[in-house]
Design a binder for these strands. Sequence first.
DNA 1: AAAACGGGGCG
DNA 2: CGCCCAGTTTT
Length: 344
Amino acid sequence: MPLEKNNRSKIPRVLEGWFLETARTFPWRTVDTPWGRLISEFMAQQTQIERVAERWPSVVARFPTPESMAKSDEQEILALWQGLGYYRRARHLKASAELICKMYSGVVPDTVEELLTLPGVGKYTAGAIASIAYGKREPIVDANVHRVLCRISNRSGDPVPSEWTWEEASKLALNCDEIKIFNEALMEFGAVVCSPKKPDCMKCPLQNSCASYKSGTQFEVPTPKEPAKKKKVFHYAVVMEHGDELAFEQRGDKGLWSRMWQVPTVESTVELTSSQVAVQLGVNDQLKYLDTIQHSLSHRSISLSIFSCKCARDARFHWFQWDSLAELPLASAQRKVLAVHYLR
DNA sequence: AAAACGGGGCG
DNA sequence: CGCCCAGTTTT
């Protein structure tokens, strides 16, 4: 059912008013610059906003301009990104900073077309920067916007995001007062009121305009997509000690935890014995078993067994003292490994 | 078109 | 412990 024309002119104003009255305070809304917004949008991809709010200030403080990040070492950005996941985003951000300096005179571009040339910037992020940072009348569709618009028109079955949602968002963008306010309002509204599982319809300023609410289908619209099945895998991490130093290796530039560091690790789709692990790592001594922990990702269920051993200072690895690990980019699973070793 | 890519918090 | 969540890139 298409949205009524009168609703298209009314909805933007209602949401803008609602947002100006109730918006949460986030640091990027207080210190509001295009570069700061670019960073917050990268950080917010597939990441809960509270996690972003905690981390954003330290990233912006260290890299206040695209130039400062372009000149920096990738490792330093990855270290600031520790625990946030999707580490490719951090490298995309640095690559974008470099491109901004090289092609756009160090200024974050203000058109969707130019923004789309930046690595890590897709249709949503380009629209978000153009509209929220620069006030360009561009639509945006993220998961929140998709859900809100589908519910208002009682549309189920569309993938996230759908062509229909983008068209609908475009029409609304033409009818809003201030695009910067409206686009943020649409997302904030989806996050705070029109939430996935528990939409607060009793407090909803759009209750009278919502086709899903009228037909009582707000809990089934939009249709959620089937989650992928998790593949079960086995990781064997060995904490190698030489005096007060520990061995580390850096992961490759593709795939899981790319460019992050880890203690020497064997990955397998089947269970391995400790001696098989020792052979694969080229360790002669017996491995001391410490513990096995479960680490769950969206697409993988990892059984992570942790061993330790005393060994020679092997040149195949990088060796770090315990108190120098703070600056080493480690994913959360590695922090767990070190905690198990430290507490043994 | 589908798969890959993380992690923390909450009920 | 299962479920949830402000996308983009690669295959």
